[in-house]
Design a binder for these strands. Structure first.
Lengths: 182, 182
DNA sequence: TTCCAATAGTTGATGTGTCAATTAGTCTGA
DNA sequence: TCAGACTAATTGACACATCAACTATTGGAA
């Protein structure tokens, strides 16, 4: 896959290196900042917030576990562990799916509603002040477009976590990315 | 701090929500993808690679631990734990600083040089193909500029990990961010 | 010169994500 | 209707980041 055993590597020039380091620092630092804001201003971590927020935008505030994981771009097991903790906190509840005996529906509880309502203004205000206010609409569009393309390119390489199965040959039963050439 | 006890929250419209979810998915997914590439194509994780790469660009391939942590935007303790593992692998070595009895210098070993040389082409090729090739130079500039501004805005709130001390009042001895109003 | 606050780095406990293995339920075809 | 492959979700072991507490050293002010 890496046909780069020779001196043919296209190294980064100074400008590119700067762009790359900025990007790297950003992707490492932003998730932590997001979580700090959430924990400081609410009773939720950012991942908990995201789960509740996703559920709350659903007609019944209820969702299949697998769909929820897919929507968030997470592995099933990550969600499962998190659900255990969140159920213990009382913000969600798990119930067997009527349609599929294997499935679990995740449901928002009253306490979950209260938590997300309390946390939402702070979260949205933070996002607004931090990502939208400093950028023009045109820049926002470029940003989204650029990140979408980068993400797509990574998915082509089979290295994007959530996007397994897009081009997996049938019979590849891995729960993660498929092996294109195996 | 959150003067938002009323209905005054400026919620996100559909377009903004889309931009935000794209950004959120990106910052969650990209670090993992970066690490997968590193582990797949080399004997290093992405954080190990970053340490070795930073050291290798230094005159003596040697750096104070604290400076290294600051350069990477990490907490000291994170680096310390990582150094323990990397020293065990033999890619770096720690030696007492001549100038400051408290300090430790981190030094690249021969094995470390070999590891970074072996990993670099794959890493750089990945970065090139995934972030630079899909973007025009103009887009790259917008991206860097946008992320820099977002990062600066977060730092103003004291929520960016690495950037403590920028505006801390003297006497604030926290090793993390300062409390602006305390 | 002697304190005492500040700084450099380490350590251990804790929380959370990842991976591989496992359990349970569904679906297809013979 | 039964066997085997597939899918949904969970579990436990492990790796790593974070936080707070700690040790050692420095440096300035009394």
């Amino acid at each position: 896959m890496n046909a780069d055993n020779s001196q043919s590597t296209r190294w980064l020039d100074e400008r590119e290196k700067q762009v790359w380091l900025t990007l790297r620092e950003f992707i490492w630092g932003f998730p932590a900042a997001l979580d700090r804001q959430a924990q400081r201003d609410s009773s939720l971590s950012i991942v908990e917030y995201s789960v509740l927020s996703t559920l709350s935008e659903t007609p019944e505030a209820r969702m299949r576990a697998g769909d929820l994981a897919a929507e968030l771009g997470w592995q099933r097991s990550r969600l499962s562990h998190l659900m255990g903790r969140m159920e213990a906190k009382g913000v969600v509840e798990r119930m067997h799916s009527d349609l599929d005996g294997r499935g679990q529906d995740v449901v928002l509880t009253d306490a979950g509603w209260a938590a997300i309502r309390a946390a939402a203004p702070g979260h949205v205000t933070f996002v607004r002040e931090v990502v939208f206010d400093p950028l023009t609409p045109a820049e926002q569009d470029v940003l989204e477009s650029a990140l979408t393309r980068i993400r797509a390119r990574i998915a082509e390489d089979g290295l994007w976590a959530g996007s397994a199965g897009v081009s997996c040959p049938p019979g590849n039963s891995s729960q993660n990315a498929c092996e294109p050439g195996a």
